[in-house]
Design a protein around this nucleic acid. Sequence first.
DNA 1: TAGACGTTGGAAAACGGTTTCCGGGAGGTT
DNA 2: AACCTCCCGGAAACCGTTTTCCAACGTCTA
Lengths: 332, 332
Amino acid sequence: MVTLEDVARHAGVSLATASRVLNGSTRQVGAPLRAKVELAAAELGYRTNVAAQTLARGASNVIGLVVHDLTDPYFAAIADGAMRVAESQGLMVMIGTTHRDPEREIAYVSTLNAQRVRAVLLVGSRVTDPETTRRLRTELDHYRASGGRVACVGQDLLGVDTVVPDNRRGAAELARALAGLGHRDFAILAGPDWLIAPRDRVEGFTGAIEELGLPAPRVLHGSFDREGGYAAATRVSGVTCVFAVNDVMAVGALASFRDRGVRVPGDVSVAGFDDILTLRDLVPPLSTVRLPLADMGARALEMALGPSEGGRAEAVTMTGEVILRESTRGPG
Amino acid sequence: MVTLEDVARHAGVSLATASRVLNGSTRQVGAPLRAKVELAAAELGYRTNVAAQTLARGASNVIGLVVHDLTDPYFAAIADGAMRVAESQGLMVMIGTTHRDPEREIAYVSTLNAQRVRAVLLVGSRVTDPETTRRLRTELDHYRASGGRVACVGQDLLGVDTVVPDNRRGAAELARALAGLGHRDFAILAGPDWLIAPRDRVEGFTGAIEELGLPAPRVLHGSFDREGGYAAATRVSGVTCVFAVNDVMAVGALASFRDRGVRVPGDVSVAGFDDILTLRDLVPPLSTVRLPLADMGARALEMALGPSEGGRAEAVTMTGEVILRESTRGPG
DNA sequence: TAGACGTTGGAAAACGGTTTCCGGGAGGTT
DNA sequence: AACCTCCCGGAAACCGTTTTCCAACGTCTA
């Protein structure tokens, strides 16, 4: 293990000088010494010990990213956006996957705090349980008290900078668009009601339907993933249009309908939410509400890394754009 | 910032005792003192400074994962498998995405070395350029010389433990299966030839076709992703069956055919390789060669973490299983 | 030519833990 | 009662950097 001291000795300079040449930035070092140090470092194959550096500097070059599930294209897209920003700033990324367990999310914040990461990004819907949220907040406050920065992609419940998808409005606009096609009888494939995002989407959708004076949609709950969509879709009947609260559930629903011989959009229209990349390759192409996922991840990290806005947490709302494709058409 | 010393003072014990209670493991501490320390730590909200711990211990609790592209379901699946193993061992995961740039891969190994991560997992096909491989090996040797562990999912070219998908054999078996359906005229949507995995798959496929005495397949090169598959597929003509060297290229090919009004499998059969999860939702379901992706990632990390086999690097071959679905049928 | 000043190099004190010793006390054996 | 162990607490060295002083050395100005 080659240390900076070895390099300094080999170059015939002091530890301080070697440090200034190889890592430090504040002060100048004369050209001749600088060259000697660089040569010595190369010859010995010196690698900075980041742990020591972090300890001495009191700040690391790592950010933490907490997502629910990396194999879900929704999270992969957001993570990718964030990672590009991190890379452009020379930061490494530490990832934790919670598999939708709020306890794990809290535990990860604690661990990332111990790692003294520069910033933590929490990606994914918040939960409705106030006690869980309170505990997470406590943990985050603790982290921030020691200089950590935090941002969230989800709902503005943590007192930190947040990128908020406008779930209600997006769902409402989708509802109006679908009603505009002539649909009157809707089913909603809803997620679990302890997650806020799916709940908001349900409310936005039903609210708009009510305003239009149409019969209230039938709400079928399932888990917030493909299997949940599949399972909930098997219980659908007597409607002309199905709204799945996210795309992966919609994908599950399409599979379910295919397996049951229900044609989309012939027998029933289907729409999702998020516009994950995978949708390009579905048949029929899925109607959805587009969210700029990669941008959301990038933006959130930029907020976390940027100067704190006078201590005041900022919330940026991202509005979705309704995109009607072939999976929806008028009834009959 | 609460330090261990604060905790020790608050509890009225020595630094050593506090350390032993809160982090250390080797030695026992009597119940009364132990309780006092734990109480003090809780009251003060103490969080271990992992950087200091890493420095003192000389080993971290982090592993590095280097993949080409996280939004590609192939890599997401492997990463997920590896991350589950990491989590079960209480390790954090630092991820780097190279976007298929070998230079970035080398740079990441260097950075992860500086981070003193416990182990590094390199996921993705090796390149044909020996010079690049040599430089990567140098960097890896350097890392291993200081106690780092390395494993690879790809080809056994780095002198480290490796999980090797049997690309030639898988492709050959797929070729025989497709020929068994009656096909004689094949096109291969090949990846760039500076990547070994796609090249091996092409060779395995053509080799088997030759052995059967059939005309040599036409090889069309494209990038190793969906767009490459799409582009290459637009140049396909006069064949009854197309083999895309991985599933995401096959997905691109399906899109291309769909856009051009070429029916699959009516006009042309299409097969891919890897069996990524996304395939479940394609229409028609894609024939492919199944690789146990999550297991491969998990296995590789286990090898990296396990005891070194007497210094000898191990190579585990994973054979693929041909799966014929509806995207392939006999010609005519 | 003396004094002030701006550079540049080095010694040494942090940073926050872990771990090796060392010492004292309790318990067991002859 | 003397001796030997074993167990457990504490003092202090150490991990590899960064960074604050401090000193030495031109160079410029008056």
